[in-house]
Write a protein that binds this DNA or RNA. Sequence first.
DNA 1: TGTTTAGTTCGGTATTTCCCGAACCAATCA
DNA 2: TGATTGGTTCGGGAAATACCGAACTAAACA
Lengths: 159, 159
Amino acid sequence: MSCCSEEKSKLIEEIGVRFEQVHQLAPLAARIYAIMILSPKDGHTFDEILSITSASKSSVSTHLNHLLQLKKVEYFTKPGDRKRYFRASTYYLKNTLEEYHVNISDEIKLIDKIINFNKTNNTQKFQNTGQIALLFREYLESQKVNIENVINKMSKIEI
Amino acid sequence: MSCCSEEKSKLIEEIGVRFEQVHQLAPLAARIYAIMILSPKDGHTFDEILSITSASKSSVSTHLNHLLQLKKVEYFTKPGDRKRYFRASTYYLKNTLEEYHVNISDEIKLIDKIINFNKTNNTQKFQNTGQIALLFREYLESQKVNIENVINKMSKIEI
DNA sequence: TGTTTAGTTCGGTATTTCCCGAACCAATCA
DNA sequence: TGATTGGTTCGGGAAATACCGAACTAAACA
């Protein structure tokens, strides 16, 4: 990474590592997303991303397009300027919460299947651990509601 | 997968795919963990796991040991029987919540760094998105408290 | 004391992931 | 109209991951 302060470079790496897992991104895609989040409002050009990441044009192109497709990144243009200026999607935090919401809904569906399976096939086991499983399920439900509330609050903020 | 009902096999796969991501496990490790969760109280022997997964002894050994080390799986023995009987850790749901708790704490630390960075380096951007970021942070805090409460409730249940 | 049981360890290989360079293209510029 | 700019596409290769077979070990059995 060149073209960055020491602090920014380190933060890009730290966010990058996390985003690989949370958002299921390739390392370079996660770094690019991190760069966007730490970027000024007017974004970065393709070439700037090239020099910050010191990756190849092809890789930057591929991963940037992937991020665009996922709506994690967006771009805008300036009149009389062929370049595109890339930045994190204005709603990336809200979108992240929406991802979390889908995730939790899936997890609830799955734990319901597990609870049901053990209830009918492992009756003895269920007597012991069933209560815990139901508590876990309640937890997921309340997380879901919590997320919905925060999404609503976010929707009311003008950007 | 042999030795299982159609329903159980499908559920093992479904849980497996999810656990690869959630718990960062290799496919076979995730399948074994899934099997444990859907197992009767008295667990499964090494050979039973072999025949359910139709994987090699070496792979089962390696991944089972990994799961033991992570405390996701435990085993017990029966007097006069050299075999070990493997099952999901009695506290696996509580342990899962504790994992989530650590994860959220890390995420809070990270978002604080991001908020701070943008506050001082991208002042203009922060004016727009700062409020959203703070809402996101609040959300994380409340998730954390929520998890703590559920862990406490779980601790009070006798198994 | 030789054999079976219940696994473990090690070296290797198939597969997948991730990234790169080179060639290419479409729009603009000179 | 030929060169430059701002990318895209494609084939390939290095590295990491996931799994396997074969040889091994330690305890127990016969």
